[in-house]
Design a protein around this nucleic acid. Sequence first.
DNA 1: CAGTAACCGGAAACTGGTTTCCGCTTAATA
DNA 2: TATTAAGCGGAAACCAGTTTCCGGTTACTG
Lengths: 217, 217
Amino acid sequence: MTVNESGGSPAPASRSRRRRRDAEENSTRILDAARQVFAAQGVATSIEVVAEHSGLGLGTIYRHFANKEALVNELARQLLEAAVDLAERHVASGEDALRQYLWDVAELLGSQPGIIRTIWNFPGSETLTARSRTAQAGLLRRAQEAGSVRGDLVPEDVAVALFAVTGILDIGRAAAASGWQRHLEAVLIGWGTSGPGLRHAPLTAADMDDIISGSGI
Amino acid sequence: MTVNESGGSPAPASRSRRRRRDAEENSTRILDAARQVFAAQGVATSIEVVAEHSGLGLGTIYRHFANKEALVNELARQLLEAAVDLAERHVASGEDALRQYLWDVAELLGSQPGIIRTIWNFPGSETLTARSRTAQAGLLRRAQEAGSVRGDLVPEDVAVALFAVTGILDIGRAAAASGWQRHLEAVLIGWGTSGPGLRHAPLTAADMDDIISGSGI
DNA sequence: CAGTAACCGGAAACTGGTTTCCGCTTAATA
DNA sequence: TATTAAGCGGAAACCAGTTTCCGGTTACTG
């Protein structure tokens, strides 16, 4: 598990007492349990199951998260954040790391099936997705400079490739792993500089905005 | 709308009276309404909305379909069947139609977002998925013979590509169209005979069996 | 046209999960 | 150690669908 961070509850007003240590820990206990349960059985699983799995009471969950949606969103936030960190780290490396980035994110996303569906579109995701796009653009430019991918690719192409991976991951658990790898491999060859040009126009930034802020079905 | 067919209710026992014409028609009315509603708002939409949209009563829906799941399954069945027909028609043409097939299915699936998630895995899908795989294998072999794709591709690669398309379609509605086209274009180049070989092993038939019969999440 | 089985509608019962509530417990502070 | 705000558990209220039921209709058949 690579994802983790802060808690779910709002920080206590600076004055007054400090947050109890058990409460602090329970926050992460809940998130961990939720991550596992949702990864294994899907987000449709009831909160009660999460409670059992975490060894805490139902009421406790609701003390830490306003409602189920808030819990799921926090998980999505953390996952997306981890993905963005990854991207930025690869950009910072200065290397031509587009390929490695794709592999790493795919792996990361694969660790959390059941949540991936929601990460592109939860309230407050805008900041993170913006960072993600910037980083992806950086990785792409670098790869283009290095001559490993064609010049007419745009950052949106990278995002779309991730959507595609999501689709593969979302279907079969165990067997899916080798599936996305080989698929991405083909995509990367297709993105190479040697092949014929791509005839279909890429998504525009505006399309992308539309996608990541449309009221997801 | 390319999808359509029979009704949802079991045919009447040969003896006794014939099925009333209005009932017959209502069956398809319900399916059509469900298709539209689910495509527009997702399968999570309540049956009541479908009833309203079809202009029929709630009870009528349940007279035609045992429960919501049965209704959704029937939609999935019809969609998958349309996809299989497509594949078989392309095989029968005798041409090198792999690319055209991919375009056509993607378009078909795109007409029914909200249902696509379920088509690989509903009770009774085995027969259809088997046909689908046979047809895809045929299309692939033909393409390989024509020299338009490399020889080491397997039918599972085609299926995985469709999973990928599903992921793209599933995310943004309006903007998604151009997305999958350009993505598939890259994949096809990657599948071409000129590029470097694919290093990652493909899914096996066994993997695929596992995927399309695992208790979906 | 009369008879009747099939069909329709929608109110009411049911279901399973979410969310609230509050008496009891416990960690922090002095 | 006494005090107390914060936190906990889980029973019960609530809610949004789903599904059942049955009195009233309507299309077939003779």
